[in-house]
Structure formats: structure tokens, C-alpha cells
């Protein structure tokens, strides 16, 4: 999985979102240990302090927690994982409506087209 960073926004929230997506997708399974800040920063080609801030955000959301010995563990809490999954899904849906709106479709028309896909 690659790190995609766009230009107009601060970097750390983008990293936090992509880490969250990896957790939801099971790239980092529940209960597993996340790679260290340094490893993740080197992988994404970003500053360790920026990655640190993204990981702090994950802790805040409950998706990860600091372990006493070292590092961070992915949560096993199904409710938190499901809530995060739903948040991401809603973001994808909003993105769809925005893209459709740019093409000149109203929300209703956009929703109708989705339904037709299933017929």
C-alpha cells in the first residue's frame, strides 16, 4: 500500500487517515503491533515528528494505544473499528456526491444512478 499525500492540506491528518484505513482494511490486524514511528516515517518519506502526530491522533480516536513495554498496539475493540469503518465509508460517499455534483448531477439523481447499478 502506498502513501498518497496531496498538496493543499497539512500532512499529519492525511497520514492519520491513511493509517486508519490500513487498520480498517486489516493491513495492521486488531491487537497487532504497529511499526515504529521511525519505520513508518521512513516508509512514507515524511518527518518523524509528523508521523508521531498522526499516531497520536490514532490514539485519540482509540484505534491504537501505547503499549507499556514499547510501541503501539492496534485496538481489538470491534465497536471502535466499526465506527471508524463507517466514518471512512461516509467520507467515500460524500466524495462520490461531490464528484457527481461537479458533473452536474443532483444528489437525488446521483443516488438514483447508484440504485440502477444494482438492477
Amino acid at each position: 500500500m502506498d502513501w498518497n499525500l496531496d498538496n493543499g492540506r497539512p500532512i499529519w491528518p492525511q497520514l492519520a487517515q491513511q493509517l486508519a484505513r490500513r487498520i480498517i482494511a486489516g493491513v495492521y490486524p486488531p491487537g497487532s503491533r504497529l511499526p515504529s514511528v521511525r519505520e513508518l516515517a521512513a516508509e512514507a518519506g515524511v518527518n518523524p515528528n509528523t508521523m508521531q502526530r498522526a499516531l497520536a491522533q490514532l490514539e485519540q480516536e482509540g484505534l491504537a494505544r501505547a503499549d507499556r513495554t514499547a510501541g503501539r498496539l492496534v485496538t481489538r475493540d470491534v465497536q471502535i473499528l466499526d465506527a471508524a469503518r463507517l466514518r471512512e465509508a461516509q467520507a467515500v460517499i460524500q466524495g462520490y456526491f461531490e464528484a457527481m455534483s461537479a458533473l452536474g448531477y443532483s444528489r437525488e439523481q446521483a443516488a438514483e444512478l447508484i440504485k440502477e447499478e444494482f438492477l
Binding site: N7, G8, R9, P10, I11, W12, T50, R53
Partner: peptide, 15 residues
């Protein structure tokens, strides 16, 4: 900071 610039200006440091 780079993040402050991006947040305030809505654009990259390069831009």
C-alpha cells in the same frame, strides 16, 4: 511549521 503553512494558506510550501 509546514503543517501551519498548509493549514493557513491552503496550499503547499512549494506553491
Amino acid at each position: 511549521t509546514v503543517d501551519d503553512i498548509r493549514e493557513k494558506e491552503g496550499k503547499s510550501v512549494d506553491a
